[in-house]
């Protein structure tokens, strides 16, 4: 990629940043890993290694892959995965939240907790597809997993979510 690609990357920062920030906030919910740190590091790493971006995938899926890999490295370091089940719902509240009635707040926090409790391979697919609006080919670019397997994981993730919501007292 030449300098025009880098310039394009800089110009797209205003669109890429909030999207990745929301995605990583959802992905890292309930963990001690700070999404802001991951997002900043991902963008810096991407810019430093911009020559390795071949343009075969979209810029967003490329930066998403970097952020996800950085997060997974952090998970490994902190071995936090097992702790997610014990995270109180309140801790999943964000500074940006604007809940209307209290009931809505409760429902959203339970849903966040249910998503956070999913194993990483299911959680990442649910978040990329539903929260971030990626297509299956895009998710495949990020994860390196074929579309059929991703759809199968999505089925299992939704099944788990239904089960977890039942356990948390919010039966679907």
């Amino acid at each position: 990629m030449d300098d025009s690609g880098k310039e394009q990357f800089r110009q797209q920062l205003h669109e890429l940043y909030p999207r990745l920030m929301r995605a990583m906030t959802a992905y890292l919910a309930g963990s001690t890993v700070d999404p802001e740190d991951i997002v900043q590091e991902a963008f810096l790493k991407a810019y430093q290694n911009f020559d390795s971006f071949e343009g075969k995938s979209g810029m967003y899926t490329w930066i998403y892959s970097i952020a996800r890999n950085l997060s997974i490295d952090e998970f490994r370091k902190r071995k936090y995965e097992r702790l997610l089940h014990s995270v109180p719902s309140d801790e999943l509240e964000l500074a940006s939240d604007t809940f209307a009635p209290d009931e809505q707040r409760e429902e959203i926090l339970i849903l966040r907790k249910a998503i956070a409790m999913l194993p990483e391979i299911f959680r990442s697919v649910v978040l990329m597809k539903i929260i971030d609006g990626m297509s299956y080919p895009e998710i495949s670019e990020v994860t390196g997993v074929n579309e059929q397997t991703l759809k199968n994981r999505m089925f299992r993730a939704r099944k788990e979510l239904a089960k977890t919501l039942k356990l948390l007292g919010a039966e679907p």
Partner: peptide
């Protein structure tokens, strides 16, 4: 699964995650 609530809005709107200071810093 059909009865699952819509998860799309669980993390709020995109504009809420726009942070000019962090973007300028980057």
């Amino acid at each position: 699964i059909r009865r699952l609530p819509d998860l799309a809005a669980v993390y709020g709107e995109l504009r809420l995650f726009h942070d000019s200071d962090n973007i300028q810093h980057l």
